[in-house]
Amino acid sequence: MSIHLVLFLFFGAVAVAGAINLLAQSHPINSALSLIAVMAALAGEFLLLGAEFVAAIQVIVYAGAIMVLFVFVIMLLNAGVEERTKGSRVAIMFGIPGMLMGSVLVAWAVLHSYGQDEVVAGALEGAPRDIATLLFREFLLPFEVTSILILIAIMGAVVLASKPQAVQKRKEH
């Protein structure tokens, strides 16, 4: 077992454990923390794959920004322990077996397609400079278009989360 495989298995185990914990926990904040663990472990996997930049961004954006938002909202709404209401039995009955089948299918397809082909870790230097070049040439349009996406998101967040009274206030002015 090479050191890479050991590290892969370690991070992978953390990620899977985090994912399962996310499902098992009944309190949203615990789920959020396990999700952060998954993200951190994935950052590790990215490092193994030689994607240093992506790994760093993963930590900053996902763990540092998106999940903070989640935690913030959980705190803000003081969300309590999940109620075990009747749930959607149908979803559980058909969804989970279906999902299992789907993932087994994908896993089989993947193993079938690639078998033991190995990835040379670090074969691809995810240097920020190269990524930037790609981003500003080949993917210029998608990159620019994301600005609209973000604009919409900001606007939407403001519109939806601001108190409805704001409308009244505006009218009075």
């Binding site: 090479s2 890479h4 495989l5 892969f8 992978g12 990620a15 899977v16 996997e45 193994l48 794959l49 994908v106 896993a107 993947v110 193993l111 397609s113 690639y114 078998g115 033991q116 082909d117 190995e118 990835v119 040379v120 870790a121």
Partner: peptide
């Protein structure tokens, strides 16, 4: 080295 499929299965 780690086989590609392991990553994909993990994903």
């Amino acid at each position: 080295m780690v086989p590609l499929s392991y990553y994909l299965v993990l994903s």
